[in-house]
């Protein structure tokens, strides 16, 4: 299986540990290639109302990834953008849309992983990113009367030592929202602060998510306010080594940011 590794631009720049963990995880399942000339999915333009300005980014995406069996990235948000808007913004890429996957979705739906070999002995709360939850239906959202499987929960539960923590509000948005975070800074920060309070009060040591952008926003507040909680991408938990010491993982996390 030929897998193209799609690393969102800000993860490449700021969170290389997330990309490394994703690579490591995917290498268990196939031959992984990281095309070095990839840039971005174009979502920032699209959500800002300038979707046409993002077409060139989609062209680059297509050129880099069109020949793989699967294209996998550690971001539901970026993947959702490609899926929802790729075909109408750049019709040439329509045939490849179904091959583009978010990492956790790929492991759950395509690989159907049942026994992840990983260990992370911590109390963890999963921040259900909106694009993963409501956009890709990765889990049961609190608004709907459905019985959707929460795929990320199922995967994290396979990790040895993890205690899953449920916050009071199961799936409220963190307030990042791309350019929303800078065009509506008051609300954005307030939303993030409220989410963090909920996660801290619920007793979680770590907030994890399939979307590093939510975590970047939350971590921005954590670092500024020196709050007693840490963020870590789901890929890092799912790829965490059995028997590696906690300090190693914390060191890896520190290196990442």
């Amino acid at each position: 299986m030929e897998i193209g590794l799609f690393i969102p631009c800000y993860i490449n720049q700021f969170y290389p540990e997330v990309a490394k963990a994703t690579l490591k995880l995917l290498q268990k399942y196939g031959n992984v290639t990281y095309p070095l000339s990839q840039t971005c999915c174009g979502q920032p333009m699209a959500n800002s109302g300038c979707e046409k300005d993002g077409v060139d980014a989609l062209k680059v995406f297509y050129d880099n990834f069109k020949d793989f069996d699967y294209v996998v990235g550690p971001s539901a948000s970026c993947v959702l953008h490609v899926r929802e808007h790729g075909a109408h913004l750049y019709p040439t890429m329509a045939p490849m849309i179904d091959k583009v996957f978010d990492l956790t979705e790929f492991i759950y739906d395509v690989i159907k992983e049942k026994e992840l070999q990983a260990e992370f002995p911590h109390k963890v709360a999963i921040h259900k990113s909106c694009h993963g939850l409501r956009g890709m239906r990765l889990g049961q959202c609190s608004e709907r009367v459905t019985c959707d499987v929460s795929k990320q929960d199922v995967l994290v539960e396979q990790v040895t030592g993890v205690t899953l923590i449920q916050p009071k509000r199961a799936d409220e948005c963190c307030g990042f929202g791309g350019t929303f975070s800078v065009s509506e800074p008051d609300i954005s920060v307030r939303m993030g602060t409220d989410r963090l309070k909920d996660y801290i009060e619920s007793g979680a040591e770590y907030i994890t998510s399939g979307d590093m952008s939510c975590l970047m926003h939350l971590d921005g507040i954590i670092q500024r306010e020196k709050l007693p909680i840490k963020v870590i991408h789901l890929a890092e938990i799912l790829a965490s080594e059995i028997n590696s010491t906690t300090t190693d993982k914390e060191k890896a996390y520190v290196n990442a940011v």
């Binding site: 993860i11 700021f14 290389p16 990281y34 921005g220 500024r224 940011v257």
Partner: peptide, 21 residues
């Protein structure tokens, strides 16, 4: 820097590109 009024920006280290190369 509207982001930075109440939030820290991420601190860049080695990019994944460079590590991968």
């Amino acid at each position: 820097n509207t982001w930075g009024i109440k939030r820290e920006l991420p601190v860049p280290t080695q990019t994944f590109d460079d590590w991968y190369k």
